[in-house]
Amino acid sequence: MTAALTWGRLGFRQQRWELILVALGVAATAIAMLWFASQLNGLRAASPGCVPPAAAEFGSCEAALNAYSQIEGLADNMLLLSFGAPFGIGVLLGAPLIAREIDAGTAQLAWSIGRSRVSWLLRRIAFIALFVVVALGVLAVTSEILAAALAPERNLGSDFAWFGRRGWLIVARGLGALMLGMLVGALIGRVLPAILAAALVMALVFTGLSFAQDRWQEGLTETHRMNYSEAGSYLDSGALVINTGLELASGEVVTWSELNERGLEVSYVDEQGRLFASEQDMQDGNLLGYDVEFAIPGARYAGVVAAVGAASVGVGLLALGLTAVVVGRRRPV
């Protein structure tokens, strides 16, 4: 216990400035989120006939609607902060963690004294990883509270609204980003270049992960025909729409890009969402097909979040393993 506290204190002393700034940033963001949530709830309670906008009467609600939409827009931007926070924190705290010690020559000294470089590495990162989990955990909770205030009528536990911008996925991404930053720092061995390189590597890795996620999610989609004339005939509002396309008259389902590749064009849509190649076809009733959406139902939200979070943590664990290899093989220059 004493040893853990000593390593924790060392971790804090070495990154005191960064940790204080990150803690202040997280605290300010969390307080702002809670404030916006209380403002939104207050506006709804004060003007139930005007807010949410769907309930508003044209003209008489202008002031209430303006106030609400202004707060709503800012609150939505706050949730963008919670999307960027894991990557920012990963770069700022992860990249310098090992790079600074290599840069200052203290790592080499520690390696020559310590029994194992891997145990040194694990002790060095434990405190920071715990700090990141707690800091991002706070954002995960407050972002959920803010999202609930933005859409109180929705069940956000089975809803893809603000996917990746609320909840525990923020923490999972933060851990992945932290380890990735640490790997870059261990490879480069200089603080400032490591920060710049970590930002680039993180952008590449997480963009790649996002593409892989898109491909995987395509396999989870269900196809739903869109009907413009009947309210409520869409998918549940919590679904994640991955793509749109066409159900041909033959029953075959194709995406718009596949349709273009076949040289087919859609020029006319009627109120039932039926598509026609030309005005003449519409008059003659020669149907081309129906508008469809490929979407993941909201009920699968928890499973998708768990899988995406696991992938981020997996990337982090892989980076941690590679860092251990780099640290183990690095020459004590």
């Binding site: 400035w17 700034l21 940033g25 700022l92 603080v191 400032l192 920060i195």
Partner: peptide
């Protein structure tokens, strides 16, 4: 003022 690179970068950003 700070005399340290990384804290200076963070504070400059803020």
């Amino acid at each position: 003022i700070l005399g340290r690179s990384l804290p200076a970068i963070l504070l400059t950003g803020l």
